[in-house]
Design a protein around this nucleic acid. Structure first.
Lengths: 265, 265
DNA sequence: ATAATAGTGTCTTTAAGACAATATTAC
DNA sequence: GTAATATTGTCTTAAAGACACTATTAT
């Protein structure tokens, strides 16, 4: 038992200490002699799938890499954690987001983490995937570091036209799947709209995301029943009957409907 | 622009190469000279919250650490990714699970990733959190590497009695929250039962998890309507009327009810 | 027969879904 | 007025929830 107590992969630093006869006696001593860089740690990155709707179709923010590997290929914005500047993972995600768009997103959520031996040619790597929702209105795209170009690209059937670096096509699918699932029982889709919007605009986002027709009266009642939409007092004027403008109450993103939209499932 | 193209934190290895005048010309050349260990990468671990029900109460598997830091403290089973042996994150989670219990779990799901500067005294660290569900029946607990003791511990109000290492109390809460949420619209709770079970046993798990009374007739219909429970033909005999035994169909874990249990929300 | 648990029947309520009808604007 | 979109009304359906009732076993 004792001989296999420390597995090879588990604590290289500890093992090294043991082999050198330097078994630390206290936690303080252990930490003082501990060097995190000697660990066999995977590469760790954060990637952000930023969605918006432009002219009634779903778009995602892509950047063109200007570094190896996958130089000149398009990818989701993302990169390494800044061990000095980033206090936690969310900070990394928000930094990446702001770096490319110049603004904060009204909604940001962690999707999950993908890690494997083969997903990055440099070695074992994992990436913590986020998705963000924002209106494309005030955004001024900036290439920032690591990218030569930034652009919104339309998403169709869970894909963009471009071939993406790494496993980012898979990541995009995962993020979209999460968003589509949540569209069935939350108000998240609204966060791709500017702060003020009409009910029809909001319902149209659901139509785009779920790729199915949605009954306007039903959806209107479903949304209003939550009491998380407040009238701004303003109207959207057009060639036809003006529509009331609404905004979300603060807790709207947390709301969970008791019943899912059934739709085409 | 060019001067701030490569942020300090982003590509130390690349920066080093640039400073040394070794700008690689091709991806192959770049990869050949690439040394992942020179990266400033966070510590990366995988932790698994393994739930079961023993004598009608929710239990979680804990291990007592026999290594620094937090030596002798209880914690969730987990540890470093084996860059050689583990092909992906799920493999690490399954390995940790099997290492302590000797069996595979009928259900394993990634909850999310927590990472920050301060959660580990050794430095910036992130952990990918999983939760697993299993029957405690056939399990033979084994301390395995890194632990001096392994034991099931009852969970009450989202807590165990023991003080846990690192931020594992928080991780336990996160995993439990996910499980409780899913109990409202999935059949996952059943995966803490042995392969064959009665409907009343299954409903009782929901009661334990959701900490509220659940109408037996309602729940029975809700479960049976899915057609994902098949009768085994056997009966559980007791002092009273025998109960039919059921097992899950293969896809039962994926099933999502259109409507949530409302309960005490 | 009684106790105890397994299992069925029935009624109410709520929200989704379908679709008809009305309201308000520009022209 | 018409066209177009916003908004309201009404009916159906399905499942949750509540609770009364029946069924089957051991004693």
């Amino acid at each position: 038992m004792t001989s296999c107590m420390i597995a090879d992969s588990e604590w290289p630093q500890f093992r090294r200490n043991v082999l050198m006869g330097k078994l630390p006696a206290s936690e303080a001593e252990f930490l003082a002699s501990y060097d995190p860089k000697k660990f066999d740690a995977p590469l760790a990155t954060v990637d952000v799938t930023i969605f918006t709707v432009i002219n009634g179709s779903l778009n995602v923010l892509l950047v063109r890499r200007n570094e190896f590997p996958y130089m000149d290929k398009w990818s989701l914005p993302g990169g390494f954690i800044d061990l000095v500047g980033d206090n936690d993972l969310n900070a990394t995600a928000m930094r990446k987001l702001k770096d490319k768009t110049g603004v904060d997103a009204p909604y940001l959520e962690q999707v999950g983490t993908v890690g494997s031996k083969g997903r990055d040619p440099r070695g074992w790597s994992l990436t913590v995937l986020y998705f963000a929702l924002m209106s494309s209105e005030k955004v001024r795209l900036r290439a920032g570091s690591g990218a030569s170009e930034v652009a919104w690209r339309p998403v169709q059937n869970g894909q963009v036209e471009e071939v993406l670096a790494f496993d980012h096509e898979e990541l995009l699918k995962k993020a979209l799947e999460r968003l589509q699932n949540k569209a069935r029982y939350t108000m998240l889709p609204g966060y791709v709209l500017p702060e003020e919007f009409t009910l029809t605009e909001l319902i149209n986002i659901y139509r785009v995301l779920l790729e199915e027709d949605i009954d306007n009266p039903m959806m209107r009642r479903r949304l209003l029943r939550t009491n998380l939409l407040e009238e701004t007092g303003g109207f959207r004027e057009g060639d036809t009957r003006p529509a009331k403008l609404y905004r979300f109450a603060r807790e709207a993103a947390q709301h969970v409907f008791e019943r899912n939209l059934e739709g085409g499932r």
